[in-house]
């Protein structure tokens, strides 16, 4: 029979190493600040902070992911063995517009590649279709998206901080680039222990245009002809006005 002190020690150890269970339905453990982003005329991207309670021992991976869409790109190839030019279209299916992955531990320490892929973590799990399964095309897509700051993997950037409740909180900072399209973004938090991982919790961030930016974008989408005419009238007016101003300054012109 187990002594009471041994049982207590075992319970403490188990609690220390256990990955926390998700909270009951309706209670969200992930906090995202801010959870709504307004894209106005001076918008330069948004800093987001994700905070979630975890155990000390767990490795944490946090993902900020945009809507999945099919992405059509032009493929360059050599023509006549000399000239590089567009030689065809390439379509990647179900590609997220934004994919930012942050981890507290190196990726290799989280889990085996197969486990990560099963959880949909890392660039290898993104996109579907023939193009996505071509390693060369996939690596070119990753480079294109990383160049725009829309896809990124950063290891060791999830930090563990003491929470107000006395426990530990995993804190992740994201920067959502201005190129990221308005829409709903998912924040997914995974925990890993002993090579196994699971989704701990998830939340969303709503990014939407506001003010003048929303008005101009809406006018362009819904009233294209009016928008085009207004754009021309303002441009021609500005041109003529400048002409008049310069003309007044320069007497009879040149």
């Amino acid at each position: 029979m187990q002594s009471p002190s041994r049982a207590l020690a075992a319970a403490v150890l188990a609690a220390a190493f256990a990955v926390p269970e998700p909270l009951s339905p309706g209670v969200q453990s992930v906090q995202v600040e801010p959870s709504q982003v307004a894209v106005k005329m001076m918008y330069k991207g948004a800093a987001l902070r994700v905070r979630v309670p975890v155990r000390d021992s767990a490795c944490v991976a946090t993902v900020l992911e945009g809507d999945e869409r099919d992405l059509a790109l032009k493929r360059k190839g050599k023509v006549l063995g000399l000239i590089w030019m567009n030689v065809g279209d390439v379509i990647f299916e179900h590609v997220p517009g934004v994919y930012l992955l942050r981890t507290s531990c190196p990726l290799v320490d989280l889990a085996r590649p197969a486990v990560l892929e099963e959880l949909g973590l890392g660039f290898g799990a993104l996109g579907r279709g023939a193009a996505a399964s071509d390693p060369t095309l996939r690596s070119e897509l990753v480079r294109l998206k990383m160049r725009d700051g829309l896809w990124d993997v950063s290891e060791g950037t999830v930090t563990l901080e003491p929470g107000l409740d006395g426990g530990k909180h995993a804190v992740t900072d994201f920067f959502l680039p201005p190129k990221a399209a308005p829409g709903e973004y998912r924040v997914l938090v995974y925990v890993f222990e002993q090579g196994e991982g699971r989704l701990l919790d998830e939340s969303t961030v709503q990014v939407s245009r506001a003010g003048v930016a929303a008005f101009i974008s809406g006018l362009s989408l819904r009233h294209g002809l009016l928008y085009g005419i207004l754009a021309v009238v303002v441009a021609a007016g500005a041109g003529l006005l400048t002409g008049v101003v310069f003309g007044l300054g320069g007497g009879k012109g040149h």
């Binding site: 754009a231 021309v232 441009a235 021609a236 500005a238 041109g239 003529l240 400048t242 002409g243 008049v244 310069f246 003309g247 009879k252 012109g253 040149h254």
Partner: peptide
């Protein structure tokens, strides 16, 4: 194209005066 409308109307005006 939109900005060229401005530059070319400004330039056309200047040249027309001359």
């Amino acid at each position: 194209s939109n900005q060229i409308v401005a530059a070319s109307s400004s330039g056309t005006y200047a040249h027309a005066r001359a």
